[in-house]
Design a protein around this nucleic acid. Structure first.
Lengths: 188, 188
DNA sequence: AGAATAGTATACCAATCGGTACACTATCTG
DNA sequence: CAGATAGTGTACCGATTGGTATACTATTCT
């Protein structure tokens, strides 16, 4: 399993730095110091490698997100926890975060977009459920889960990208400003 | 010039649909019904084609943006005009808008990112100048042009993407909500 | 010991990539 | 009419793409 782990590590670095399409299978193998049949033995295909990679990197994050998005009858606080989870992720794995967003904007029929889509769907539905639950306590939010989830996600990504591009720090204050701005968009 | 224009049109469709990297020179030529030397006669290279394409599509937009971003001592109204310009663009050329954003998120050393960068820089500096001018009227905005410009751009892109993904309409009301939310983020 | 299984390398595949040498034609200019 | 110039097609280039047939080795199980 040593070669397998090494392949994943090298692929992650190369993908996040150069993008999925721009990195050839041969390049990954060279970086890992092995040959192609070894890669195809473990992952079956280049996209199989990407899928495995995303699963191993994102599933832990999604688990954290799941517990953060558990509604505790305080929508502001819950959203704060959610935003914190994203910010932590962006802080710890900035390259991966960028790579993920680049896949989100990739052409819809590309391997990269398809690989990323299920993870995005899980985030979206997690947040939709959160907003749906909150709407039981706040009548004026009713029926808008989809839009709320998408725009909250969009706003988080905007803020994280701002920070990744050096316009701010991903600190507590930045989370609070995000929350403040988003909540004002809802309740006015 | 008929073949030239036809090439640009076909390339635009293919790029916006499949992404820059995923479309080969041969594919473009087939779509335009010509052969490769013709393409290389007009544009010199694949990236030359992309650059020409972006220039012809985005320069008119940037001209509109320039006049919209002309500060008239009413920051809310000016930002409203700016946002309107973006929304119009997103409404008229949704595929191109998506393609543009995908280039923004592309790896920094890719052809696509390099081709898009100067256009982004012009938008950023246009907005920075606007916010700098507005800071003369609103002291509490002083010294924050860069962040304001980047976050306003980010918020616009978020809203346009929400609409392009079917979560909303790019209508007047949506612009107003964007403005409302952004201004509240500044003045509180 | 013998058989099965996982892991790995050599060497190859067809297809495609971006790009070009060269010859030809159409058109415009003197 | 002669010559220059722009535009275009045929046929090709070397490099790289994702992927594989086959044989070898190392380990593990019976």
């Amino acid at each position: 399993m040593e070669n397998r782990d090494n392949l994943l590590k090298c692929a992650l670095d190369l993908f996040t730095l150069n993008g999925y399409d721009a990195v050839g299978v041969q390049t990954i193998c060279d970086a890992a110091g092995i040959t192609k049949p070894t890669l195809y033995h473990y992952f079956g295909s280049k996209s199989g490698l990407l899928n495995t990679l995303l699963a191993e990197e994102l599933n832990p994050f999604l688990a954290q997100l799941e517990s953060a998005a558990n509604y505790r009858h305080d929508i502001t606080d819950t959203l704060y926890q959610v935003a914190q989870t994203y910010f932590n992720f962006g802080r710890q794995k900035p390259h991966l975060y960028r790579f993920y967003l680049s896949m989100w904007f990739a052409p819809h029929d590309s391997e990269a977009f398809k690989a990323m889509q299920p993870f995005n769907d899980r985030q979206q539905s997690l947040l939709e459920n959160l907003f749906a639950a909150a709407a039981l306590d706040h009548g004026n939010m009713q029926g808008r889960q989809r839009t709320y989830a998408a725009s909250f996600l969009g706003m988080i990504n905007t803020y994280v990208m701002l920070a990744l591009n050096g316009f701010s720090e991903l600190d507590e204050d930045f989370v609070r400003r995000l929350l403040h701005q988003f909540m004002h968009g809802i309740f006015s």
